[in-house]
Simulated scan of single mutants.
Amino acid sequence: MRALLVVNPAATTTSARTRDVLIHALASEMKLDAITTEYRGHARDLAQQAAESGDVELVVSLGGDGTVNEIVNGLLHRGPEPDRLPRLAVVPGGSTNVFARALGLPNDPVEATGMILDALSERRERTVGLGLAAGTPGTEDEAAPSRWFTFNAGLGFDAGVVGRVEQHREQGKRSTHALYLRQAMRQFLDDPYRRHGTITLERSGEEPITGLVMSIICNTSPWTFLGNRPVYASPKASFDTGLDVLALRRMSTASVARYATQLLTSSPERGPHGKHAVSLHDLTDFTLHSKVPLPLQMDGDHLGVRTSVTFTGVRRALRVIV
């Protein structure tokens, strides 16, 4: 078997020692090419080359969720063809590693490598669904490039938080849960639209849902982790179904305190709920429109601002080693 290992040296918990241990372990089982990324988008380019080569059977990611997202977009640049495309294996090397942990992998890279090697030996894999976001035809965002996401996306408040965190990371600060919580508070205080929502959700055959302040799109559950604590925005979300949505119509101080508490105490059986919360399960296609440009994020990567995004849940899009 020929495999490509893509290493992001800037990922939060990726070290040279971890990389060397992983290379040694994988190289003992397969023909391995290991490449360290050198610029943003490099992982996507490497995965695209691997998909087009025809002789790479496995692409291994060592990095965080951003690295995984780039690799997935490189592999699927021509669309989902799971039987033809290389399989994906994920070794967690970031600060949160939502995708890897949602697959059931340990958060420790060495332990995860051992599990992946066992899975390869036993031919264990699953074909997971993914989310696809694109510019909406007939809008000013029509030309926006399509992009795949593995675990979540967001338009509005949570994407604004992601953008703030990225700004601090560019200034040299580490990505920590404390940093996210501080920026969430600042985003809340600065958000001019938190009381009067600008987002409308449209789907075929249903009445539009208007006045939304924020919208979180989940492709799996949990939505994220705070340390070792899983946080469930849409508990029913799954790699085996379409997309789930959690949206809020209001974000007053009292409602935010209530929903934050519900998130922190959420479980696989129950997520945020209440008269200002909208929860939708297993959607295939829907569009979010906003009266004003709002920030967009996918898999924790800030993508600028949009006024209209169309989302598609694509079942059985990619084979993953688990």
Rank of each mutant, 00 (worst) to 15 (best):
P109H: 01
F151C: 09
R124E: 05
I116A: 00
L155C: 11
G131D: 02
R203W: 05
V110N: 06
A100W: 00
V110Y: 04
G94W: 03
H168G: 06
A159T: 04
E142K: 03
R126A: 10
F149H: 01
M185Y: 13
L132V: 10
P86D: 01
D118M: 11
D158P: 06
G114V: 01
Y193A: 08
N97V: 04
M185G: 14
E206Q: 14
D108M: 03
R195M: 15
G129T: 07
F188H: 07
D141L: 04
E142I: 07
V162N: 00
A100H: 02
L105T: 01
E81Y: 14
P192A: 07
A153S: 13
G94P: 04
T210S: 14
G135N: 08
G94I: 02
R203F: 06
D190Q: 15
I209R: 05
L130S: 05
K173V: 11
T198I: 12
R87V: 02
R203A: 01
P145H: 08
T176L: 05
R203Y: 06
S204R: 15
L181F: 13
T210C: 13
T210G: 12
F188L: 12
N107S: 15
L201P: 02
Q187K: 08
E122Q: 11
A134Y: 10
D83G: 12
G154F: 00
P137S: 08
R101M: 09
A144Q: 08
A143I: 03
R194M: 09
G172T: 04
A159N: 04
P192L: 06
G160V: 06
V128A: 05
N107Q: 10
A102K: 05
R147V: 07
T150W: 01
T113K: 02
S121L: 07
P80K: 03
I116R: 00
R186V: 09
L105F: 01
E166N: 14
L179F: 13
E207N: 11
S175A: 15
L155E: 06
G94R: 00
V161Y: 02
A112D: 00
H177N: 15
R195F: 15
P82F: 08
M185R: 15
P192I: 04
V110K: 04
T150F: 02
R101Q: 11
Q187C: 14
